[in-house]
């Protein structure tokens, strides 16, 4: 490993940390434009975080240490995920520690801790949210793993950076299996990040919410960490999508610092486009009832399976 690889690694994590709220702000802004509302400032998410960090934490009387520890664990899991995903370069020293399957496991760890923390206070909403989150989770995980599997079959590896490299060297022609898988991945992204067909990030109507219900008892710094983690998760998912389906841009292999300087604008461009697309999907679709979520995610799974079968049958 060369120093530039370590630099890429640190830069990636730092960029994820700094840019995740920005990306979320950008999605919010696009959404507001598309829905004919006046958009909040781009930096509104940072202001929100700053405000939360300044407040006094109010913790429920019978909260256990698990409740206080969970935000740190979830945040750290999202940081570790950011370190694995090749968003700027593919020579990441840390990526050998965990492959794409471990990444799926990492998201599961975060989800379990979030749900456990939501159950800790014992309010009806918290438990309800935890139950729903775990339900969406166990439906989304097979679909996500299937997506990982198809791309792993195509690239003959489960290591995410290597996968990305091999995808990038393929011809530009759209392979049908990848197209199916990309649709599946987008659906999983929407479900896992509490976006509109499954959950509404803007709602605070108790009976419909999932993610927000779990955070109801959190305040101040803990809430800030949780919000930041949610932003990081969305950012990470977007970067996984780039690494698998739009792998051009990041510094490949042993490319020098120049490639890195080209990778940053490429990433920004992709994020801007993805944010717009996400806002468009969210504006065009309506929220599903909770028990329609399985159908949505089963469709995602089916798309991934189709991708797999198409790859095995046609080799494309």
């Amino acid at each position: 490993m060369k120093p530039v690889d370590w630099f890429t690694q640190v830069l990636e994590v730092a960029a994820a940390l700094a840019a995740a709220p920005l990306f979320q702000g950008w999605v919010n802004q696009c959404r507001a434009w598309l829905q004919n509302r006046r958009a909040p400032p781009l930096l509104q998410t940072y202001r929100g975080l700053r405000k939360l960090f300044h407040k006094d934490a109010v913790i429920a009387l019978h909260a256990s240490p698990l409740f206080r520890a969970a935000p740190y664990v979830v945040f750290s899991a999202m940081l570790a995920a950011a370190a694995i995903i090749p968003s700027m370069g593919t020579r990441l020293p840390f990526s050998a520690a965990a492959d794409a399957i471990a990444l799926v496991g990492l998201f599961a760890t975060a989800r379990v801790f979030l749900s456990l923390a939501a159950m800790d206070i014992g309010t009806p909403f918290g438990t309800l949210g935890a139950r729903r989150e775990m339900m969406v989770g166990f439906l989304a995980e097979p679909a996500l793993l299937m997506v990982v599997f198809v791309t792993a079959l195509i690239s003959a590896t489960t290591s995410l950076p290597v996968m990305s490299e091999r995808m990038a060297t393929q011809s530009l022609a759209l392979s049908p299996s990848l197209a199916f898988t990309a649709v599946a991945f987008t659906m999983v992204l929407l479900a896992e990040n509490g976006r509109i067909p499954i959950d509404n990030p803007a709602t605070h109507l108790e009976l419909t919410m999932i993610h927000e219900a779990m955070l109801l008892e959190y305040s101040a710094r803990h809430l800030a960490l949780m919000e930041w983690s949610a932003a990081l998760k969305l950012f990470n998912y977007a970067c996984i999508g780039f690494a698998l389906f739009i792998p051009w841009g990041p510094a490949m292999g042993g490319a020098g610092p120049f490639a890195l300087s080209a990778a940053i604008p490429a990433l920004a461009l992709k994020l801007a486009a993805a944010g717009g697309a996400l806002a468009l999907i969210e504006t065009l679709s309506a929220k599903l009832r909770v028990f329609r979520a399985p159908e949505f995610l089963a469709t995602a799974f089916l798309f991934a399976v189709l991708g797999l079968l198409v790859h095995l049958l046609l080799g494309a």
Partner: peptide
């Protein structure tokens, strides 16, 4: 790495936050 992430988050909270906390009955909307 997970442990380092937790330490980083703790350090960040120390920088940004005054670490005051008080206990109250659960809010529950």
């Amino acid at each position: 790495a997970l442990l380092a992430g937790i330490l980083l988050a703790t350090a960040m909270v120390r920088v940004f936050h005054h670490r005051r906390a008080r206990r109250a009955p659960p809010w529950s909307c």
